[in-house]
Write a protein that binds this DNA or RNA. Structure first.
Lengths: 240, 240
DNA sequence: CAGCTTATGCCAACGCCATTGACATGGTTG
DNA sequence: CAACCATGTCAATGGCGTTGGCATAAGCTG
């Protein structure tokens, strides 16, 4: 097999596979995401990906160094989809809120991919561009870099943390997901009030609320905090 | 192999393995967590767990239905460790803060285990007890159940979300972790100011801040929000 | 203590998996 | 048009989770 993967841009000879498919990094990533969505994390194996593409599994090693490299490419594609079509309005708060909600939504749209790539740093183009954009929004609001970085850090961590947590609930393999849901009805809902009075008293409310995300609320809390920091910065240096 | 796993409490015949070890659910879970800590997620396989215990891999299926069942047991042990020794002080805010920090710390102490068990609902004893305790703290503060559940939901999701995100950074296999860190120095730190001015301007600050958790700040935001809700409830119904 | 039952651990085997090296083939280039 | 070599394929390796059948000894019964 190849020692080195040829960068996508340098590919010249596009040779169709036996099944007549012309491979590309893009096609492989898209197919991998489709497999993830269809059959969950367990559904994505090199062999099955090869089969789904109509190519020998070992062909994929011409495009990715290994499974981990493919994972990073999927991570970058997720961020890319979140950012696609976004444009700054000039209102930092609206922009940041929109960015947060877009990332959250993009992850929830592909929960298995989101969990698979949780907290990886791909260093690929889309990820870098997103970071550049977020930092730019905060810096344009007139914050000193120290505060920019504090809020950037909280923003990106909180967004990814909720995105992954919310995605994880959707991403469980059907069996595990069914088991987890059954726990609520079979275990929690049947706890006697004598031993677990607080759960017993609130179980209907708990069940009703469990499927919503707390992210929007948390995001607004963070934006309030950022607004206060901006007001402070303006008061300290009105010329800025 | 056994159709059904014998519950730990019902075990009578404790037969040592060839290597002289007497198995138990507790011993297996502890050994699994040790393997996770030593060699990461890839280090925990049924075969290696058997070897580490001095038992045939298939013996473990007498204690757990499969790998997923073992995962849930690890999840429950993690929560159990977070709660061990905790006692209510009667001050809801201090209690809730302490609970959040304990869960966060317990996860960070076993990052690989934290990631492995991310967002699973075990329904086992320790998890149920923790939920009962948290709900109890909020209800004792004089909130109506509707608000209790709203804040409980945000609290537990935010805590687990940050715990898992922060743990994930520590939990990467050494190779991947090294790769991710290298990205910061090899890729981000070298981006030219012409194309990525905002990253270039803030990179030293970013690198310095990256290793801290934003969880304590986010937790305090949530506690502020809860305090406001409690004040509202008291104003609306002074008799409560 | 003797004998029985059966829980428990062990063995061998199955069909997956990721990854690799050697080889075949056909696109591109000169 | 011919040669090169990037790309796809094949076959093999070693590891994985899981299972069925079997041996053995723990604890019960008398």
């Amino acid at each position: 097999m190849a020692k080195e993967v040829v960068p996508e841009a340098a590919r010249k000879r596009r040779k169709p596979t036996k099944a007549g498919v012309v491979l590309s990094e893009q096609l492989i990533v898209e197919t991998a995401m489709r497999l993830l969505q269809q059959s969950g994390r367990e559904g994505l194996t090199v062999r099955r990906l090869g089969a789904a593409l109509g190519a020998d599994p070992s062909s994929l090693y011409r495009y990715f160094r290994g499974a981990d490299d493919l994972t990073l490419a999927i991570a970058d594609e997720l961020i890319g989809r979140a950012m696609r079509g976004w444009e700054a309005t000039g209102d930092w708060r609206a922009d940041l809120r929109e960015l947060g909600m877009r990332i959250h939504s993009a992850y929830l749209a592909h929960p298995q991919a989101a969990v698979l790539t949780a907290s990886r740093v791909s260093g690929r183009a889309n990820e870098i561009d997103a970071d550049e954009v977020i930092l730019g929004v905060l810096r344009s609001a007139g914050l000193p870099d120290r505060e920019v970085v504090r809020i950037y850090h909280a923003f990106i961590d909180q967004t990814l943390a909720f995105a992954v947590l919310d995605a994880a609930g959707l991403a469980l393999p059907p069996a595990a997901r069914a088991a987890d849901e059954a726990v609520w009805h079979a275990t929690y809902a049947r706890l006697p009030a004598e031993t677990h009075p607080n759960i017993a008293a609130t179980v209907p409310l708990l069940v009703a609320r469990m499927n919503n995300s707390a992210y929007p609320t948390a995001l607004d809390m963070l934006l309030d905090n950022a607004a206060a920091a901006i007001a402070r910065a303006r008061a300290a240096d009105p010329g800025a």
